[in-house]
């Protein structure tokens, strides 16, 4: 019960929102990408790259915003590589995404050991220095409201930014011609050509946006929530995001709700893991006999169950995953 939360419920809610933030952020990016027809299953790798780059950049400069900026930039750069291979090289998007994941795994390991070598040579610690991580930001005035205040208005910067982004993207998709262009790119690229909208450029920009979001989501994990780096830090959250986009049927509202649901599951899982030995509730007693790995498994099983129960075949954008132009002449 850290951070001075008054009740378990309050902590659970706070934790839910905080755990949902990276899912939402990466999810919004992936959603925009998929709406234009680019499916990037390398989102997990992009998040991991965001984690390591944010951590090392923040630690090296001592500036938290440098970490965040570098993470977003690294996410965009990797996404640019992916998009280049997929859009201009016409490679299969799923397979290229899988390659991106492997690349991220290797790159983060390489970068991390280079960084450790560097620190060892200079006799520095690899811990994140003070000020290089983000702290919670309490919204003046609102954070003192009962329950809502500590839950909703005492969060990390990126949480507020993500909420604004979600509303912004919803507005763009609903009311602007940019939104029409995004949807048309994934639904009917041939229409875009007739309207003078450059298909590959549009998709490229959307993929960049997705990469930037995923990188920032990675930064959230490493320099906001934990202020540490570990190789299994993303732990499949990027894949969860892919499931959530399908689960939300390519709409932003359901996507956010799904993220909150999985955030809740995630934090419940963590709380169950840590508190089942301390609570003397008889109900908890029963839980104690369940191996904690099953709690860790819970989000993945829930994601599968949600897909199985709720995703009756919704085709998604018609041109999703298809190369453009379709015929090579």
């Amino acid at each position: 019960m850290s951070l001075g939360h008054e009740s378990l419920a309050e902590f659970l809610c706070w934790q839910t929102l905080s755990a949902a933030t990276p899912l939402m952020l990466a999810g919004i990016g992936e959603l925009v990408g998929e709406l234009t027809g680019v499916i990037d299953i390398g989102i997990e790798g992009l998040m991991l790259i965001g984690c390591i780059v944010a951590y090392t950049a923040a630690a090296a400069t001592g500036q938290a915003w440098m970490g965040l900026g570098a993470a977003a930039a690294a996410g965009m750069a990797s996404a640019a590589l992916f998009a280049g291979v997929v859009l201009w090289g016409r490679a299969d998007q799923i397979v290229a995404g899988a390659a991106l994941n492997l690349l991220a795994l290797g790159l983060s390991a390489t970068l991390w050991s280079l960084y450790q070598n560097h620190c060892a040579n200079l006799g520095l610690s690899t811990h994140l220095p003070r000020g290089a991580g983000y702290d919670l930001v309490a919204v003046p005035g609102l954070s003192h409201l009962p329950f809502i205040g500590p839950v909703l208005f005492d969060q990390y910067t990126l949480f507020y930014a993500t909420l604004l982004l979600a509303v912004g993207i919803w507005w763009v998709l609903r009311f602007t011609r940019l939104g029409l262009m995004i949807r048309a790119l994934g639904e009917s690229p041939e229409t875009c050509v007739a309207c003078g909208i450059p298909v590959r450029l549009g998709r490229f920009l959307a993929a960049l946006f997705a990469g930037g979001c995923a990188g920032a989501a990675g930064a959230f994990l490493s320099i906001m929530r934990t202020k540490a780096f570990a190789f299994d830090m993303t732990g499949g959250q990027g894949f969860m995001v892919l499931a959530l986009v399908i689960f939300g049927r390519w709409a932003i509202g359901p996507l956010v709700l799904g993220c909150l649901f999985f955030g809740a599951l995630n934090s419940l899982q963590q709380i169950l893991q840590t508190t089942r030995y301390t609570l003397a509730d008889p109900w908890m007693h029963a839980l104690r006999s369940v191996p904690f790995e099953f709690f860790q498994m819970l989000p993945y099983v829930a994601a599968l169950a949600a897909l199985a129960l709720l995703s009756r075949r919704h085709p998604g954008p018609r041109a999703l995953g298809q190369p453009w132009p379709q015929e090579v002449a």
Partner: peptide, 27 residues
């Protein structure tokens, strides 16, 4: 065109806005 250049999931008005409008702004 013979194969209509229309986006099935968008409304009639949105299709016209997509084709007629310019720039990314409000419809």
């Amino acid at each position: 065109h013979q194969n209509f250049k229309l986006v099935d999931t968008l409304s009639v008005l949105e299709n016209i806005a997509l084709a007629v409008g310019r720039g990314p702004g409000l419809i």
